[in-house]
Design a protein around this nucleic acid. Structure first.
Length: 109
DNA sequence: TGTTTGACCACGG
DNA sequence: GCCGTGGCCAAAC
């Protein structure tokens, strides 16, 4: 058990994302002051369903399901979002701007 | 140990 | 408004 790695930090933030909301890699990177949004995606790359990390709630700044291809099956990501009430069309989150959630916004409030 | 990659973002033309 | 390039940091090879 070593010190927490970058993925652990990302996992924690993604887990804080309330249901029916979506966030972006840049928001997480900015919240964690990573300065490198690529690390967020890279961290989620090692993410697994067993970790309980709703990676499907994480999209790029365009609101597009950029990481859907890393899901199994890829359509799983959209299915999960729709299951949470998030409308997804053309692999893009509808009302993305409205559903956008920032780590600074406390979900439990 | 150095190089390459990676679910990206911001800026410039 | 769209396309191209740079940057960013960390892990894997």
């Amino acid at each position: 058990m070593s010190e927490p790695t970058y993925f652990d930090l990302v996992y924690a933030v993604v887990r804080k994302v309330p249901r029916g909301r979506v966030t972006t890699y840049g928001a997480i990177a900015d919240y964690l002051a990573l300065g490198a949004s690529r690390m967020v995606g890279w961290a989620l790359n090692h993410c697994r369903p067993g970790d309980g990390v709703p990676a499907h709630r994480v999209v790029n700044r365009k609101g597009e399901l950029s990481g859907r291809h890393h899901f199994d099956p890829p359509a799983r990501m959209q299915a999960l979002l729709e299951s949470e009430g998030v409308e997804v069309v053309n692999d893009c989150v509808v009302n993305f701007k409205a559903l956008f959630w920032h780590p600074e916004e406390e979900n439990d409030k």
